[in-house]
Design a protein around this nucleic acid. Structure first.
Lengths: 342, 342
DNA sequence: GAATCATGAGAAAGCGTTTTCTCAGAGCGT
DNA sequence: ACGCTCTGAGAAAACGCTTTCTCATGATTC
């Protein structure tokens, strides 16, 4: 006897009474699960629409053991990449009648597991987006979250599908591009320390270094947003590099703006690349050379992988490990260096 | 007898059995609602943590009649403004233990009411963000959605709190700013037809026209994103106006890029203003003069108004109608016009 | 020492659905 | 006309929790 009965929403019981049938019959009519006499069905439907009856999803969820909702955990909702994934996921999921519940960990690593667990209990599955937690913790957490889809991380133990972008490959191609233009002094403006995608970039660049020992490649610390790019301007100028690989487009844009303020021209004086190809990248001045990540696909594919797991619950999951290769997007922020490097 | 019992998650019954107490006692211990013998409580807690018991939120929701979730309906999740509102809302709500469920109407007006209704049934309240539906429909829908918070729209009938931005005022100030710089030929590149905020801008500009009959002010049709701004470039040039009021920052940025491609310099040849002050606005080249909308505040205030309604359920709601005044953000995309207007 | 009271735990109802189980009645064949 | 199957509707259990109600136990008071 929880809530008082007064003033409650109209429920299946009201419809049943009005139509002169049992609860069960109303449920049958609403869901079309079993054969019901057409006459009775019509009566029920009339009663339902007259009372504007709408089934209570919570009761439904309890009985069915599913919520038609999936959760997504992201490190920072301010990041356009995660926003785009969220959007792609939401649109794809809604096409199948599912809704998305969001949880923003605000880059607080210790919160991720808690948020994910909570989301999982409320939802039929969880998408874990670029988690910052350590490998061991992820390995332990993953099985408890199933159905789970991982973005930008992988796990070995369980067969959880993962979607990732080959950041190592992309950053190498960008570096190649700069070298091809004639640059000999490069600098990488790195991202957040706990970011797995940042580590991938570092690994890729290490490989690049081995293959091009003649090229100077400096590593500079930075962040993942505008401001950190902007703040790094002086360090970049001091580095003497002519080709700058920014962690992502946001950082590149901040840097672009900082360089402009210092009177340096891009690409004449210095070349800058981004990463991600966020929608804004092609509208910067100059338009940004970057590695395009098929971000919309990521969101919708995440949903497809989730749906597969939800549908074939129990069956041997097909452990899909999708990896996307970034596509070079050569624009105007890169060019051959001036003859006499600064 | 819905699902088969096999393989089910561990529930309150398991804890009760393990601790040798009744379901009720476990519930009492978990929620701290009533006095429980410390010894028994400890036993229950031990059993719970040993079994890693986590209450099922669906069962909880059904019993409590609340879901600790609120819904938000937005016209387009790709729009940075709505992304920012979503983010502010989500962060504020999570501080109080609430989660956010999202619904994207994809600008399909007819879907809004359905999505909102569905969201409301699943959640404890709904935030309706810049709905495109007509006034009559909104008026009819609002009472059925309570607790409801409206953003960028108001409603008279019920006492639902609303948050809005004085777009009319902001656009007038921007126009004033241009006139103050010496511009005499202005053009407004308008937004989506169904957008209430676009109508507000038009009303504001009508007022401006009355007060400044000597100023030429053209109205051009446009959209709300980069591309529409970009596409309008030629129409803008053809208009002969020297001061352009873009619908929002996105449109302004697209326009900036288009003008650049046509060899026109901003602000020397033509001045451009945006609206919203999205994070990117200060990093464009040149940095964009715009009217700043306190977008983060909007999201968190939306939550505060929602929380007020949820808490004082039943009590006379305080029908708050908050209106924000945009703040002029004068940057480098506006300047005095060339002596001889094009 | 008996009556009263406070404390705290268990039984059970209730939240709003779905689904199984059961059974009445109709239709059919012999 | 009898028994069989079949259709379809109601009764009730189940989902997992909270909370009221009830009652036993031990403490308090006269």
């Amino acid at each position: 006897m929880a809530r008082r009965n007064t003033n409650r929403r109209i429920g299946i019981a009201d419809v049943a009474e009005k139509a002169g049938v049992s609860h069960a019959t109303v449920s049958r009519v609403m869901n079309g699960n079993a054969a019901v006499d057409p006459g009775i069905a019509a009566r029920v439907r009339a009663a339902a629409s007259e009372l504007k009856y709408q089934p209570n999803p919570v009761g439904r969820s309890l009985a069915l053991g599913k919520t038609d909702t999936i959760g997504i955990v992201v490190p920072d909702l301010a990041n356009p990449t995660f926003q785009a994934i969220l959007r792609g996921l939401s649109i794809a999921a809604s096409q199948d009648g599912y809704r998305v519940l969001i949880a923003d960990s605000s880059e607080v690593t210790s919160e991720e597991a808690i948020l994910a667990g909570e989301a999982r209990r409320r939802c039929d599955g969880v998408v874990l987006c670029a988690p910052r937690m350590g490998d061991a913790e992820l390995e332990e957490l993953a099985p408890t979250l199933h159905p789970l889809v991982l973005i930008n991380r992988t796990t070995v133990a369980t067969n959880t599908p993962s979607l990732s972008v080959d950041y190592g490959q992309g950053i190498q191609e960008l570096a190649q591009h700069l070298v091809g233009l004639g640059h000999r002094r490069l600098a990488f403006l790195s991202g957040p320390e706990h970011s797995a995608s940042n580590r991938q970039r570092l690994v890729g660049l290490e490989k690049f270094r081995k293959e091009h020992p003649e090229i100077e490649l400096q590593m500079l610390h930075g962040g993942s947003n505008f401001d950190s790019g902007h703040e790094s301007t002086e360090a970049i100028i001091a580095s003497g590099a002519t080709g700058i690989l920014a962690f992502n487009d946001l950082v590149a844009m901040g840097l672009l703006s900082g360089l402009h303020e210092h009177g340096l021209r891009v690409p004449e004086d210095i070349s800058v690349t981004g990463f991600d190809d966020i929608p804004f990248a092609k509208y910067t001045t100059p338009p940004l050379t970057t590695a395009a990540v098929p971000i919309n696909e990521l969101g919708s594919l995440a949903w497809r992988r989730m749906r597969e797991q939800i549908q074939q619950a129990g069956e041997p999951t097909t452990q899909a490990q999708d990896e996307f290769s970034p596509r070079m997007e050569i624009r105007k922020s890169t060019a051959a260096p001036a003859l006499k490097p600064a």
